[in-house]
Design a protein around this nucleic acid. Structure first.
Lengths: 233, 233
DNA sequence: ACCTGAACACCGTTCAAGT
DNA sequence: ACCTGAACACCGTTCAAGT
């Protein structure tokens, strides 16, 4: 008898294929569209089939993040710590930009996967190998925070805020929140309201990153020219 | 006839009462337990009754955040910008610590509420009133990022990671991720693995905040002693 | 032993029927 | 005009029945 022609002959499922399909689905349709049921549809299998390759949805999300972290370039060796850290973080940022859902999912995780631990470990290693003390390195890791993985938590998206708003609303906004409007690039003069272009995210990211790295460099110089700070713990 | 005694005589619902109950529920049972249905149960009303006070769940979450932001102290006036910013951010941190779900919910919001815009506006105002240029202030706001509201996105929680783990697992972790273990306070010597205390979050927060504020101060001094930087946009 | 359809215990929200 | 029970269109996951 003829087989069903709808799904002509499916390649056997595998954890890898499940994860790839999940990443593709989240990239294309958005993370809110990623459900076990929808994903199984996409793969032409019954929902329960997924549970042979991932224990539950949490593990699926962990696996998806591992795919993204896997796209980050390995650290360049033989250069100064600042360049090495900077380059790697900017590479991480590229990976995160390719998968806009990843930063939000990352934030929702409770325990790091081995892949993420490897990434953190090699990042910390750059500092330690350059002579940073354990405790200073610890503090730095907290200070760099989510930037380590190439993203910053923006409190709100100021790039496209004003675009879709009627001029009247923009004017009212500028009146109630003059400083916000100024920063957002909405210059108000002669009663006329002009909405400037959204800001350059890449520039802002590098500005902030360099502000931190410069501060860190200063701390390292201080640490290496004097004893440990009294504040050490 | 006797009334039902289960819910003796409910106070009329109001937006305020709905929001307070939602905050209390999220505080007590966790944000994952907050559903429209569960919340209506808690208030002794039918789920649909909530929809007269909030348009949908998104608006409920926005309202809950407004409650939290409302707990942040107003800015202290008459002191230098650095102290003013520092104090306000530390006050925001206290509010966020009282409502552990708030930072995560905040990150999921797409558009800021008027209450949040007011907060941002007054924060920006501190910088502008102290002579920071519009563009430098813009960059700073990006650099301070989520710290403005008193939290940092921790990539993973290193305070309680090692506590619940069997000694064997800790030892294996220390072998595979030596730098991470070092930072996490797990010192390995003589084959013995000792797990140190979790780090002091308040110290780490202030360390990072001061690293940024010191960097910002240096930028301001540079800005005020020379013309605008070539990199301005 | 393996696979999976149906079911369970939930969601947020719509809507028509009831008062 | 107001209110709300039932329904809709979903979830993630369990489990027992089928092969």
């Amino acid at each position: 008898m003829a087989e069903k022609t709808e799904a002509p002959r499916r390649v056997a499922l595998s954890r890898d294929r499940v994860l790839r399909a999940a990443v593709a689905l989240a990239d294309g349709a958005g993370i809110e569209s990623l459900s076990m049921r929808r994903l199984s549809d996409e793969l032409g299998v019954v929902p329960m089939a997924l549970y042979k390759h991932v224990a539950n949805k949490e593990e699926l999300l962990d696996g998806m993040l591992d795919v993204v972290v896997g796209e980050i370039d390995p650290p360049v060796t033989g250069i100064d710590w600042k360049s090495a850290v900077r380059q790697r973080i900017l590479s991480a940022r590229q990976a995160l930009l390719r998968h806009p859902w990843a930063s939000r999912v990352l934030e929702s995780r409770s325990n790091p996967t081995p892949v993420l631990l490897d990434y953190m470990n090699s990042m910390i290693g750059i500092f330690r190998a350059s002579g940073f003390s354990v405790s200073l390195t610890h503090h730095l890791m907290h200070a760099i925070g989510s930037r380590l993985l190439g993203f910053t938590q923006e409190l709100f998206d100021d790039t496209r805020t004003a675009e879709a708003m009627p001029a009247e609303v923009v004017r009212e906004m500028a009146r109630r929140y003059p400083y916000v409007a100024e920063i957002a690039g909405a210059a108000s003069h002669d009663g006329e309201t002009v909405v400037g272009p959204g800001c350059d995210d890449q520039f802002e990211f590098e500005f902030s990153l360099d502000l931190l790295l410069d501060g860190i460099e200063r701390l390292r110089l201080r640490e290496s020219t004097s004893g440990p700070r009294p504040v050490e713990r």
